[in-house]
Design a binder for these strands. Structure first.
Length: 272
DNA sequence: CGAACCTCCTGCGGGC
DNA sequence: TGCCCGCAGGAGGTTC
């Protein structure tokens, strides 16, 4: 479900409820996520949050006494703020008690996400995070980085920009959208995309992600922010899930194909 | 190394 | 109405 804008929207939503507060309790109701949820995190009750960060699609909750929680929402995960009296829902797997009768609830029907605890040290050095590429909205991501990643690859450019070791946070929606705005067909072999076009692609990725964050992310089916509200960037999508509909730019029907087992959308007229 | 394919899991919508 | 099929915002693993 969530790509970078949705994870960032979640981060911004939960941060004010977590920062400088201590968990009053932690309850693990289901351990079977992508990696087993360590039940020892229940013993982190009393630990205070010192930062709520994002790295790619991972959330990092830093605690006093040195440890961090690493949270990933997978395809169907969400984090919501609820009242402790609110009825629990199916798939509410981890419940973090907060001051003032609130709770942070990790909900994930498909269980592709994860909740881990790093007891000490820099969580960015955790094996899951260590090899991640640059943040797309930072200066570390530019056309020369992308050019280096594309150089020897015959794979479609779409697959390269979705590779988290190249750049983090670009998932299936924003890959198609960014390529549309850059005027590049998704299937183009990465090594055949010229440098000026890579410049445009970098700018398109930045603009699309930033614009989506401003709208609270994209809700296709079930994404909700920490208050249970959907995101509104769906209305600004140009190609994703618009197969057969007229291109918002030229009117030609939006095309659809499966690329690397993922649905892919583009305009054959606007993208070359 | 890269590329193609598979897998984890639940829920939902479409077709019959 | 019900059942079966395919598909879904991720990402790690295997094989060649």
């Amino acid at each position: 479900m969530p790509e970078l804008p949705e994870v960032e929207t979640t981060r911004r939503g939960i941060e004010p409820h977590l920062l400088d507060r201590a968990f009053t309790s932690i309850q693990v109701r289901e351990t079977r996520l992508r990696h087993p949820v360590p039940e020892t995190i229940e013993q982190l009750a009393g630990h205070r949050t010192t930062a709520v960060r994002r790295r790619g699609k991972y959330l990092i909750v830093d605690l006093d006494r040195g440890g961090s929680l690493i949270i990933h929402l997978g395809m169907s995960g969400s984090l919501r703020i609820a009242g402790e009296g609110d009825e629990l829902r199916k798939h509410d797997h981890v419940i973090f008690g907060l001051p003032g009768g609130l709770q942070l609830r990790y909900h994930d029907p498909r269980r592709f996400g994860l909740v881990l605890h790093v007891a000490a040290g820099d969580p960015l050095e955790h094996p899951l995070l260590r090899s991640l590429g640059p943040e797309p909205l930072s200066d570390a991501f530019d056309a020369s980085v992308l050019h280096a990643a594309c150089r020897r690859r015959s794979a479609p450019i779409k697959q390269v920009i979705m590779d988290a070791s190249v750049v983090v946070g670009v998932g299936n929606i924003y890959a198609s959208e960014s390529l549309f705005h850059a005027g590049i067909r998704p299937r183009t072999a990465a090594r055949r995309v010229s440098r000026p076009r890579l410049d445009r692609l970098v700018e398109a990725i930045r603009k699309v992600l930033a614009a989506s964050i401003e709208q609270g992310g994209t809700t296709l089916r079930d994404f909700v922010n920490s208050d249970g509200e959907p995101g509104y960037f769906r209305q600004k999508l140009y190609v994703y899930e618009r197969a057969g509909d007229p291109c918002r730019n030229c009117g030609a029907p939006i095309r659809h194909a499966v690329l690397g087992q993922r649905a892919t959308y583009w305009c054959a007229n606007c993208q070359r």
